[in-house]
Structure formats: structure tokens, C-alpha cells
Design a protein around this nucleic acid. Sequence first.
DNA 1: AAACGCCGCAACCGCCGAGGT
DNA 2: AACCTCGGCGGTTGCGGCGTT
Length: 350
Amino acid sequence: MGRAPCCDKNGLKKGPWTPEEDLKLVNYIQKHGPGNWQNLPKNAGLQRCGKSCRLRWTNYLRPDIKRGRFSFEEEEAIIQLHSVLGNKWSAIAARLPGRTDNEIKNYWNTHIRKRLLRMGIDPVTHTPRLDLLDLSSIIGSSLCNPSLLNLSTLLGATSTQSLFNPELLRLASTILSLKQHQNPEIISQYNNSLPENQLLHMQQNQPFPSLQPNHDDINHDQFQNPVQSALINVDHQGLSSNNVTSTTNLTTQDNINNVIGTNIPSTTLAENLVAHDLPAESSYFQNLFDYSNKDFSFDSVMSTPSSSPTPLNSSSTTNVNSGAEDERESYCSNLLKFEIPESLDISDFL
DNA sequence: AAACGCCGCAACCGCCGAGGT
DNA sequence: AACCTCGGCGGTTGCGGCGTT
């Protein structure tokens, strides 16, 4: 393990520590305490530099170090703390008893960071970014489970099953914008059925405003974005499966595929979470969605999901970590599924 | 079974700030 | 004020293990 000795200047050893060296270091510190690291190796009879001894002690030999896999709670804490503190590993480690900054840094770089990237979440800003989304893995996981291929569910084929989450909106945004460039005539045909003001939203092709957690200065007007308009238009302008199948034999999937010109399987965020091995009940994602939800200002208009036994908490901008377990589950439900009541006229909110 | 490539992680490197002289 | 030492921190490296071909 570790870097091999690259030099041996000053007669000091480098590279992996032997059990004998560890024993010497532990014995010395147990007797005398760390004290001056510069003098420690000489006094302890070690052919190491003080820095090397300090690192070995703080990162490996310290008795209060907790070894082994990170628990879900620890992992969640790391993600949340990182969203606040950034790469301040020592500050994060200070809040995780028994874990060292080096261990947390390694775990972040080898596990969490990659997982966030796969999910299309920028590990630096903690905001959803479609350009980071590993579509191939999502598509792959969807292909393995044909039941996930129901794009009509994603885009709200029935008004009681509408799903709204920023990642899917972002996905749809890019798909639509890409196809707008590739097949402008198709988009144009589709747009002909839309009111002018809604058409404008779709053609603006602007990126989503950044959904930065942990900031209070959320712009509540940000929910008026072209993607959301587009998706709501899809829902309201006759692309629902009921309307479509009543006039043609095409399914909503077919219609969407016609619009975007390709077969894009869909999956819900919950399925993504499962597929990427991240616990769906993570409050990090509750928060992430919470802020997205805040952006969209939908929290005040959403009704209780029919599939959820827990009423939607109307004050979704509160700190989810301080709530009781049922509240946590409620937020989880909100994270994973948004539903719009049949009677609700969404255009009122646009 | 061997070769290859990827991944995890311990350890090193270089920089920086605090404190002492 | 300038210099030096020390400790801390974040970034990077590269070996060993493991899975895949």
C-alpha cells in the first residue's frame, strides 16, 4: 500500500510503515505524548521525518480512529457538510468523530464524488447538472427493467401522475433543446399547438438557474423556466395518453419520441437513487429537492400524493433534519414523487 | 492461467499560516 | 520587519488488490 520510497535523503525512510515502526511510534506516544514531532522520531528511534510520524499517528494509529465502512449516517453527513464547507476535510472530519480528514477525503473522491457525478449532480456545487449525468447507466438500468420505460409517467400522461423534479426537467430541457436544433421542423409543428407565450418559453432554451442549497437568498421567481413550461405544456396541450390514443394509435411514449426524435427511456429520480446505490431517504436529496421545490414554488400548491399515506408537509422549506421520522418520510415522498391534483390549473402558477 | 485495467487508500508533496526569535 | 520552524491542510501519487477478458 502507499507510495514506494522514492528517495532516501537524510537517511530517513519513506513509504509504507512496518508493524515494528508502528509499535515504536505508539509506544513512544503512549509514554510521552506526541510533543514535538520534529524530535519525536529521533527520540522514538525511528528513521522517519516528523511529518511522516505525525501523519501516521493522526491518520492511522490514533486509538480513537474508527475503521471500517462509512455508515449511511456518516455518508449523509459528509455530503451535507461538504455542501456547506466544500473541500474543508479537516472541518468535516471534526464533525465526524473517529474519522480522519484523509479518510473522508479518500472516501469522497473514490465513492461519493463518482456517485454524484453518475447522478448528474455537480459534486462541487451540489447542484443538478445534466451534462454530468451518466445517461448510459440510466438508460442501461432502464433497459434492464422495461417497466421503467414509461416516459408518459415522467411527463405526466395523466394529470394525477405528474412527476416534477429538477433532474427530469433538466433532462427534458436538454433533450428538447437538442432536438430543437436538430429537428426544428418537428419542434415547430409541435409548437404550433402552443400559445405564443408558452412557445416563447420553450424557444428561449435557457439553462436552469443554479439550485444552490444552503443559501437563503433563493429566487422564488425561478420556477418560471422554459423547461417547466414545456413539460406543463406537454401535459396540457394534448400529449397525454388519453388524448393521443383517442385520435391515433400512438402512445405518449411514441409522441414524446416523435417530438424528441429518439427513444429515450425514462426513470424516476427514485429509480436513479436505487440504481446508483444511494439511499433514497437521504436528507441530502430531500434538501436538494427541497430547494428545487422552493424554486418552483410548488410546495404551496401541491396536494397529498395519492400513493403516499403521509400528508405533504406544506412548509417544505423548513429544515428537514430537525423533523420527526414521519416528517422525514413525508419529505422522502415529496422528493420521489410529485403529483398534481386533477383540478389544479397549473397555468395559474406560470 | 495469464494479462490487463480499474479502484481503493495509505502516504507523500507542497503550500500556507501561526508563533517564536 | 524579516526570517525560521512547526504543524496543518488539500491535492496528488502509485502500490497492491481485485475483477474482467
